[in-house]
Simulated scan of single mutants.
Amino acid sequence: MKIPALDFMMPGFPRCGTTTITHLLSEHPGIFITTPKEPGFFKPKNYQKRQSWRDYAQLFDGADPQAKQGEGTVTYTTSWPPELADPKEVYRHYPKLKLIFLMRDPVERIVSQWINKTQQNYPKDIPVFGRCTTHYSIFLNTSRYWNHITRWLEYFDDEQVLAICLEQFKENPRQLIQMLEDFLDVRRYEYDFQTRLNASNVARRDSNFERYIKRNEFAYKAAQLAKQVLPLDWVHKLLKSDQTVQWDEDTLRWVRKEPDSDSRAALEYADLNPSYWPKMFPDESERS
């Protein structure tokens, strides 16, 4: 059994800018990141079932033996049983592994994930935005960052774990990347910070017609065909709503309350204060 060398992993969290950051790190001559960046090998449905160690090892073919080798499957921390990785199993093979958790204001992350899921039409029973947190636990529970991080801290030491935020990258991308370089123990490098990948479109909610199409298999196939034969702007006007995602105030208050202590603990672990997440902690933001 060939087990590839693996120096670091980014196991969390979805919709927090990992695609952009892994792309930047992959520019560094001393860092190698798999293609795809999210091989998902340690997902329960894949681990030595759909994928073998040989499959995983092939993703590292061609890597410089001196380079720090890593992958970025953020769905390892998605609160969805087929996706959620077992830290104990990862530790069993890679006890010296370094872990990077990229977080984001939970309120903004939930919106971004919902938009992403509706664009993918997966899963097909995804609820309308107003009910996504109350009727579909994956959105809120994936945002319980500290709950996920502590699962990994049961096996990995603090020195092996780095928790950072997308907001830090937006504020000062060079400083955040240098923090990652120090954590991975690689030399400084000059990056192109203009690149932004996998960003959400405008926070637009589905039109009623679009919701119908996504739930009806025949209508969905017809819509896909229409995209191939009709001008794109016609399809856009037909399917897309101009109304943006709007929180119901009662739901938003509930969303802020549920992971409150978890979010504070995650920020404290990252040496940041609550004002860093103004949508989650508006009162702290106003006082700062």
Rank of each mutant, 00 (worst) to 15 (best):
I126R: 08
I138R: 05
D125L: 03
I126C: 10
L99M: 10
D105G: 05
N116L: 04
Y145Q: 11
R104E: 14
S143V: 06
D157R: 14
V111P: 03
F156V: 09
P106D: 01
K170L: 13
T142H: 00
C165E: 15
E154G: 07
R131N: 13
L162G: 11
E171T: 15
L102W: 01
W114I: 05
M103I: 03
H135D: 12
C165F: 05
T133L: 05
W114N: 06
G130Y: 01
Q113V: 01
T133G: 11
Y136K: 09
L140F: 00
A163M: 07
I164C: 06
A163G: 05
S112M: 01
D105N: 11
N172S: 09
D157V: 13
W152S: 06
E159R: 12
R109L: 09
G130W: 02
P123H: 13
K117S: 11
T118D: 13
S137W: 02
I115L: 12
Y122V: 14
T118R: 15
T133A: 04
S112I: 01
H135T: 10
L102S: 10
Q175V: 05
Y155A: 04
R109N: 04
L162Q: 10
Q113N: 07
V161S: 10
C132D: 09
I115S: 08
D125F: 03
W114L: 07
V161G: 14
I126P: 14
I164N: 06
L166I: 10
L99N: 08
T134M: 14
E159M: 12
F139W: 08
N141A: 03
P173K: 03
N172M: 07
R131I: 11
L162C: 13
L102H: 11
P123D: 13
D157L: 11
T150D: 02
P106K: 02
N172Y: 08
Q160R: 08
F156A: 09
F129E: 04
I110Y: 07
P123G: 14
E159P: 12
N141F: 00
W152L: 07
F156R: 06
S143I: 06
H148L: 03
V107D: 08
I110S: 06
Q168C: 06
I115H: 07
M103E: 00
W146R: 01
P123Q: 09
I115M: 09
N121T: 11
E108V: 07
N172V: 08
T118S: 15
S137G: 07
S143H: 04
E159A: 11
F156E: 10
I115K: 08
N116V: 01
P123W: 06
L153K: 13
V161K: 10
T133C: 09
I126Q: 07
